[in-house]
C-alpha cells in the first residue's frame, strides 16, 4: 500500500524561491546547537561544581540553599524553565529592563537558552559532584585538613580532583544529554538544529519529512557519540595509574 516517494538527497535541494539550500539550514542549526550546548555545559560544570560542593559543606545554611537549588531546578521540566526565563522573567523585572530583554538584547533566544539550559544542567551536575565527593573515603578530607590545608584548599586540591575522576562516567551521560536537551531551545526562538528540522519538515519541504527527520536524528547521534569519545579521552588522560575507580 505504501507509495511514499523516498528521496534521501532532499537536503541538497534548493529552498524554493531563494538561493539557499536546505543543508545550509541544517549546518547553521547544528552550529547554534553546538554553541548552546557547549556554552551551557561550561555554566553547568562551574555552577554544578560549586552547588554540589556546597551540599557537602558542614555549614547547614549554605548546604540548605544548595539543596533547594538542586530540587528546584531538577524538578521543573526544562521546557517550562525556558518558558519562564523567556516569557515570565521580563514581566517581573522593571519595565525598562524587561523591554530591553524583549527588544534589544542580542540573540535573546540563544542567550536565554544557554543560561536556562546551563542552570538546569548545573542541578544535575551538582548531584553527580556531590555523589562523587561522598563516594571518597572519609579520611581524604581529614588528610587534607590535618596537614593545615584550609577547607577550600582541601576541596580544591584533594577532594574535587578525585571526585571528578569518580564521576566522569555519569558526567559523560550528562554531557551527551545536554546536546539532546538543547533541542528544547527551539521553543524560545533559538534557530538550532531541531528548529531547522521542524522548519524544513513543516511547510517548506512537506513531502519528504521522514528523510529529513532521520538525517537530523543521525546528526544528533553523531554529536552525542563525539561527546562520548571526548569524555572517554579525558577519562583516559586523567586516569590515576593503578587506581581502580570505586575501590577504596
Amino acid at each position: 500500500m505504501s507509495q511514499y516517494q523516498w528521496d534521501w538527497l532532499v537536503i541538497f535541494e534548493n529552498v524554493t524561491d531563494t538561493d539557499e539550500f536546505y543543508y545550509q539550514w541544517l549546518i547553521s542549526g547544528l552550529g547554534w546547537t553546538l554553541l548552546i550546548a557547549l556554552s551551557a555545559w561550561v555554566i553547568a560544570l562551574i555552577l554544578g561544581t560549586i552547588i554540589g560542593t556546597a551540599r557537602t559543606l558542614p555549614n547547614k545554611f549554605v548546604a540548605g540553599i544548595a539543596t533547594a537549588y538542586v530540587e528546584l531546578f531538577r524538578n521543573i521540566p526544562l521546557i517550562v524553565q525556558l518558558f519562564m526565563w523567556f516569557f515570565v522573567l521580563p514581566e517581573m523585572v522593571p519595565t525598562n529592563i524587561g523591554n530591553w530583554m524583549k527588544q534589544d538584547m542580542p540573540h535573546p533566544g540563544i542567550i536565554t537558552s544557554i543560561i536556562g539550559l546551563g542552570l538546569f544542567t548545573a542541578a544535575r551536575v551538582a548531584e553527580q559532584i556531590r555523589t562523587g565527593i561522598l563516594a571518597l573515603p572519609r579520611g581524604q578530607k581529614n588528610a587534607g585538613l590535618a596537614l593545615g590545608l584550609t577547607l577550600a584548599q582541601t576541596y580544591r586540591h584533594v577532594l574535587l580532583p578525585m571526585a571528578f575522576r569518580v564521576v566522569i562516567p555519569p558526567l559523560t551521560s550528562e554531557f551527551m544529554s545536554i546536546f539532546k536537551n538543547s533541542a528544547v531551545a527551539y521553543s524560545i526562538t533559538a534557530t538550532e538544529l531541531f528548529f531547522q528540522m521542524k522548519q524544513i519538515t513543516g511547510d517548506y519541504k512537506p513531502a519528504n519529512q521522514i528523510e529529513v527527520v532521520t538525517i537530523v536524528g543521525l546528526i544528533y547521534i553523531l554529536v552525542a557519540f563525539s561527546a562520548n569519545r571526548i569524555m572517554t579521552f579525558i577519562e583516559r588522560r586523567v586516569q590515576v595509574p593503578g587506581y581502580i575507580s570505586g575501590g577504596k
Partner: peptide
Amino acid sequence: TTGTTSDRYIKQNEKGHNIDVKNVYGK
C-alpha cells in the same frame, strides 16, 4: 510559527521594500 513558510514572504518583501526585519519563531 516554526514549520510554516510565512517567513519566506517577509524575506521576499524585504528586498523590494528596502526594509530589515528580525525574524523570530514561535514553537
